[in-house]
């Protein structure tokens, strides 16, 4: 049974990975490359490209790849500024970046599908409220809140080249902490909903499910603020942030839809493989 759940999760992940890989290839890759070019042109115009870029990569690359990236940008800074345009400091060519990013987009879908719709769904399915198809979408919502939604309350997707006031050493634990908070909010919302639905009825259950998310929002308000300053026009930055957020929403939506669809198709094939006991009654959280 576990293997079946994992297979179904990974299959949903493959579908979502294909869609997101396509999104990477035809939307995100060209746009990020264009935004990088714009940034580069702006930085060069202002006449402090070398200082700005090496300072930038020192500050914002932070803990991981700090030293090697720092030295790299020193070495390539002069020739790079002379070339004019192109990608900013990087260890690989733009073609490699594009190809690897498309592949990563596909794998991103598979990883999320396997982890959330394979493993987590297997354990949590009895506790997720609602009819069967709705469970897939609730899992998708919870996954989005955990992986992206909650951390974005503090650290929204940054447009390429934007400088952020918090260092990477601060932002990484902050991002991970908000992921944890998001997961806890989803789990406790589901738990509160199921419990209150049994004891106090639907309105109380809905209120109980909203409370953890209010706490999550309050947590985001008191978290350290990250000021983002970029060379791109604010309208373009807003658009890019919105597009990348939309991309993740799309990914989770496809994951959930594919997962719900694979459930239907596997049910018609092997009815006996899936437990039917207690399906129509509201399952207990424990």
């Amino acid at each position: 049974m576990f293997a079946q759940y994992l297979t179904r999760g990974v299959k949903a992940g493959l579908v979502a990975g294909l869609v997101f890989g396509l999104f990477m290839a035809v939307v995100a890759n060209p746009l990020v490359a264009y935004a990088d070019e714009l940034n580069h042109a702006t930085v060069e115009e202002s006449g402090h490209s070398h200082e700005a870029e090496s300072a930038h990569s020192h500050e914002s690359e932070g803990t991981h790849s700090h030293e090697s990236e720092g030295t790299h940008s020193h070495g390539s800074g002069d020739s790079h500024a002379g070339e004019g345009g192109g990608h900013h400091d990087t260890a690989v060519s733009m073609a490699v970046t594009k190809a690897v990013s498309v592949a990563a987009g596909g794998l991103w879908g598979v990883v999320l599908g396997g982890a959330f719709f394979g493993v987590a769904f297997f354990f949590l399915e009895p506790a997720i409220p609602g009819p069967d198809a709705a469970k897939s979408y609730l899992m998708g919502l919870a996954g989005f809140i955990t992986v992206s939604g909650a951390p974005w309350l503090v650290l929204p997707p940054a447009a390429p080249g934007a400088e952020q006031s918090l260092s990477v050493a601060t932002r990484l634990p902050l991002y991970a902490g908000m992921m944890l908070a998001g997961a806890l909010a989803c789990l406790s919302a589901g738990y509160a909903y199921t419990r209150l639905r049994e004891s106090s009825g639907l309105p109380a259950a809905i209120v109980g499910a909203v409370v953890p998310f209010s706490l999550l929002a309050a947590l985001a308000v008191v978290a350290p603020e990250n000021a983002v300053h970029g060379a791109l026009s604010p309208t373009l930055e807003t658009g890019l942030t919105g597009l990348f957020a939309f991309g993740q929403v799309l990914l989770w939506l496809v994951l959930a839809a594919a997962h719900a669809w694979f459930r239907l198709s596997s049910e018609s094939e092997s009815e006996s493989a899936i437990p039917t006991a207690g399906r129509d009654s509201a399952p207990a959280a424990d």
């Binding site: 999104f23 990477m24 939307v27 995100a28 890759n29 990020v32 490359a33 930038h56 990569s57 914002s60 690359e61 932070g62 991981h64 790849s65 090697s68 990236e69 790299h72 990087t90 260890a91 690989v92 490699v96 970046t97 594009k98 690897v100 990013s101 498309v102 990563a104 987009g105 991103w108 992206s148 974005w152 929204p156 997707p157 940054a158 447009a159 390429p160 080249g161 934007a162 400088e163 952020q164 990477v168 932002r171 991002y175 890019l240 990348f244 957020a245 991309g247 993740q248």
Partner: peptide, 22 residues
């Protein structure tokens, strides 16, 4: 094992996924 090679080649993806360092 996030050396610059891996990190940089994922640049576009990290932006698209909203997990960007810069």
């Amino acid at each position: 094992v996030q050396d610059p090679l891996v990190h940089d080649s994922l640049h576009n993806f990290r932006h698209a996924a909203g997990i960007a360092c810069h």
